[in-house]
């Protein structure tokens, strides 16, 4: 018997294949190595964010503050390093960004866990607080001369290909950060009791408490970790863009959440896999990147993404309703 999530992942994968064939037949440029590298490159930051969103959604929560956390982490880090005219390794930048992200994530955790407030309300609140704070005290002007260490980091490529037109495509080493996080989160969710506790919490909070999980500890871990990787994701974003813009990530949180849901995570909690999330994110990246290849105006992007979300969530909702109906939901 095939399980539901695998069918969900299967559908997303099939959609990716189908879409690729369509796009490729219209514009053969889609099937070049260069384009694939481009797609991967644009998936890195989304992928890092997606892993955090996945954990939150599985636990039955929702986090809309991660882009704000990412923005302030990267922007403040850039500012600080510029201020001290720091020339050293990029690791320092990552440490600062991760630290800021962690601290802000823990603020979310305090409100969610200790004060038992709804996750959406808390993260909406922290998001607008962070954005306001950033614009008021740190500044709104983008910084285009980012520190040397960050520029060097962005230039490290795992490999490069030169297209027939002489354009060089490089796969940035930053993708290793994503790869490491993927393995870590996958292992955590599948093979640790903490990870199973996250699923348990999303499935039935009361039951999770009764079976002995420490809900507060789990929530502190989730929101702290999400904050931390948001900081990292933000910094990767800055490095890859070679530009630190405090507002350019704003609004992408919905796209990431949508992609994760498309990948089979249920917004009601308890369900979701790393593979599904990666597939969902890749699908959304293909759509947003390739509509241009097809000559479709970019404002259609959000319409198409929105449509996919409706289809994706609709299918999941329909499946679970069917499963319940066959057992006599009355």
């Amino acid at each position: 018997m095939k399980r539901l999530p695998s069918t969900n992942e299967f559908y997303v994968a099939a959609t990716i294949v189908l879409l690729s064939i369509i796009i490729g037949s219209i514009n053969p440029a889609f099937f070049t190595l260069g384009n694939l590298i481009d797609l991967l490159r644009s998936s890195i930051v989304m992928g890092i964010f997606g892993l955090g969103v996945l954990m939150v959604i599985i636990s039955g929560g929702i986090d809309v503050s991660f882009t704000a956390i990412a923005s302030i982490s990267m922007f403040a880090t850039t500012k600080i390093l510029r201020y001290y005219d720091f020339q050293g390794t990029v690791l320092v930048a990552f440490l600062i960004a991760a630290g800021i992200g962690l601290a802000l994530g823990l603020i979310n955790a305090v409100f969610i866990s200790l004060f038992r407030l709804p996750t959406l309300i808390v993260t909406l609140g922290t998001a607008s607080m962070i954005n306001g704070f950033m614009l008021a005290f740190i500044g709104a002007r983008e910084i285009s001369n980012i520190p040397q260490g960050m520029i060097e980091f962005s230039k490290i490529n795992l490999f490069e290909v030169t297209s027939s037109t002489g354009f060089v495509y490089g796969l940035p080493a930053a993708i290793l950060i994503l790869a490491a996080l993927v393995v870590f989160v996958w292992f955590l969710l599948k093979y640790t009791m903490l990870g199973r506790g996250i699923y348990a919490l999303g499935g039935d909070r009361v039951a999770a408490e009764r079976v002995g999980f420490d809900i507060n500890a789990i929530q502190f871990f989730i929101y702290g970790f999400v904050g931390l990787i948001s900081g990292v994701g933000g910094l990767v974003h800055t490095c890859l863009m070679r530009n630190s813009d405090p507002v350019d990530l704003m609004g992408t949180e919905l796209v990431v959440i949508a992609a994760v849901v498309l990948g089979g995570a249920r917004i009601t909690g308890g369900h979701g896999t790393v593979l599904g999330t990666l597939l969902g994110l890749f699908l959304v990246t293909i759509i947003t990147n390739s509509l241009i290849l097809l000559g479709i105006p970019s404002y259609w992007q959000s319409a198409v993404v929105g449509m996919l979300i409706l289809v994706g969530t609709g299918v999941t909702a329909y499946q679970s309703k069917r499963a319940q109906a066959s057992h006599g939901l009355a």
């Binding site: 199973r196 699923y199 999303g202 499935g203 039935d204 039951a207 369900h271």
Partner: peptide
């Protein structure tokens, strides 16, 4: 404890 409402995890 076997709870009156079972206290199982529907998603697992």
């Amino acid at each position: 404890i076997i709870y009156q409402d079972f206290s199982l995890f529907p998603n697992l």
